[in-house]
Amino acid sequence: MFLINCPYCGERDQSEFSCGGEAHIVRPKQPTELSDDQWAEYLFMRKNIKGVQFERWNHVHGCRKWFNMVRDTSNDKIHAIYKMGEKPPVE
Protein backbone atom coordinates (compact mmCIF):
# COMPACT_ATOMS: atom_id res chain seq x y z
CA MET A 1 0.00 0.00 0.00
CA PHE A 2 1.78 3.11 -1.24
CA LEU A 3 2.02 6.40 0.52
CA ILE A 4 1.37 8.92 -2.24
CA ASN A 5 2.36 12.54 -2.01
CA CYS A 6 -0.55 14.25 -3.77
CA PRO A 7 0.82 17.53 -5.16
CA TYR A 8 -2.30 19.30 -3.87
CA CYS A 9 -3.01 17.55 -0.53
CA GLY A 10 0.24 15.98 0.67
CA GLU A 11 0.89 12.40 1.74
CA ARG A 12 -2.14 10.15 1.65
CA ASP A 13 -2.82 6.42 1.63
CA GLN A 14 -3.03 4.65 -1.71
CA SER A 15 -6.65 3.69 -1.04
CA GLU A 16 -7.62 7.33 -1.76
CA PHE A 17 -6.21 7.16 -5.28
CA SER A 18 -6.86 5.40 -8.53
CA CYS A 19 -4.36 4.74 -11.27
CA GLY A 20 -5.24 5.96 -14.76
CA GLY A 21 -2.63 4.05 -16.74
CA GLU A 22 0.23 5.29 -18.86
CA ALA A 23 0.96 9.00 -18.84
CA HIS A 24 1.89 11.40 -21.64
CA ILE A 25 -0.37 9.89 -24.26
CA VAL A 26 -1.83 13.00 -25.82
CA ARG A 27 -5.22 12.82 -27.46
CA PRO A 28 -4.70 13.65 -31.15
CA LYS A 29 -5.86 17.16 -32.01
CA GLN A 30 -7.23 16.06 -35.38
CA PRO A 31 -8.49 12.51 -35.00
CA THR A 32 -10.35 12.59 -38.28
CA GLU A 33 -7.11 12.90 -40.16
CA LEU A 34 -5.63 9.74 -38.70
CA SER A 35 -5.62 6.34 -40.36
CA ASP A 36 -7.20 3.41 -38.57
CA ASP A 37 -3.75 2.22 -37.54
CA GLN A 38 -2.69 5.60 -36.18
CA TRP A 39 -5.93 5.95 -34.25
CA ALA A 40 -5.61 2.40 -32.90
CA GLU A 41 -2.08 3.22 -31.74
CA TYR A 42 -3.51 6.05 -29.60
CA LEU A 43 -6.61 4.16 -28.53
CA PHE A 44 -5.32 0.72 -27.60
CA MET A 45 -1.55 0.57 -27.32
CA ARG A 46 -0.13 0.93 -23.82
CA LYS A 47 3.23 -0.06 -22.39
CA ASN A 48 3.49 -2.42 -19.47
CA ILE A 49 7.03 -2.01 -18.32
CA LYS A 50 8.94 -3.84 -15.64
CA GLY A 51 10.92 -0.91 -14.39
CA VAL A 52 10.45 2.83 -14.47
CA GLN A 53 7.04 3.78 -15.82
CA PHE A 54 5.23 7.11 -16.21
CA GLU A 55 1.68 6.89 -14.91
CA ARG A 56 -1.41 9.02 -14.42
CA TRP A 57 -3.01 8.98 -10.98
CA ASN A 58 -6.19 10.58 -9.66
CA HIS A 59 -6.80 11.57 -6.05
CA VAL A 60 -10.29 10.24 -6.53
CA HIS A 61 -11.33 10.17 -2.87
CA GLY A 62 -9.63 13.46 -2.11
CA CYS A 63 -9.19 16.58 -4.23
CA ARG A 64 -10.17 14.73 -7.47
CA LYS A 65 -7.09 16.13 -9.17
CA TRP A 66 -5.13 14.18 -11.75
CA PHE A 67 -1.34 14.17 -11.63
CA ASN A 68 1.60 12.20 -12.97
CA MET A 69 3.85 9.76 -11.19
CA VAL A 70 7.13 8.10 -12.09
CA ARG A 71 7.11 4.66 -10.52
CA ASP A 72 9.38 1.67 -10.74
CA THR A 73 6.96 -1.20 -11.21
CA SER A 74 9.56 -3.74 -10.10
CA ASN A 75 9.85 -2.39 -6.57
CA ASP A 76 7.06 0.18 -6.37
CA LYS A 77 9.46 3.01 -5.57
CA ILE A 78 7.92 6.35 -6.54
CA HIS A 79 10.66 8.47 -8.07
CA ALA A 80 8.70 11.60 -8.81
CA ILE A 81 5.25 13.15 -8.72
CA TYR A 82 4.35 16.20 -10.78
CA LYS A 83 1.26 18.07 -11.84
CA MET A 84 -0.53 17.68 -15.13
CA GLY A 85 1.04 19.88 -17.76
CA GLU A 86 4.40 19.95 -16.03
CA LYS A 87 7.39 18.46 -17.80
CA PRO A 88 8.39 14.98 -16.67
CA PRO A 89 11.64 14.99 -14.70
CA VAL A 90 14.71 13.82 -16.55
CA GLU A 91 16.27 10.72 -14.97
Binding site: G20, V26, R27, R56, N58, V60, R64, K65, W66, M84, G85
Partner: peptide
Protein backbone atom coordinates in the same frame (compact mmCIF):
# COMPACT_ATOMS: atom_id res chain seq x y z
CA UNK B 1 -18.07 12.84 -13.39
CA UNK B 2 -14.68 11.18 -13.13
CA UNK B 3 -14.39 10.83 -16.91
CA UNK B 4 -15.38 14.44 -17.50
CA UNK B 5 -12.87 15.64 -14.90
CA UNK B 6 -10.21 13.54 -16.59
CA UNK B 7 -10.74 15.22 -19.96
CA UNK B 8 -11.00 18.67 -18.42
CA UNK B 9 -7.85 18.36 -16.36
CA UNK B 10 -5.64 16.41 -18.70
CA UNK B 11 -6.72 16.98 -22.31
CA UNK B 12 -8.50 20.30 -22.32
CA UNK B 13 -7.10 22.31 -19.39
Amino acid sequence: LSKLEDYLQTEWP
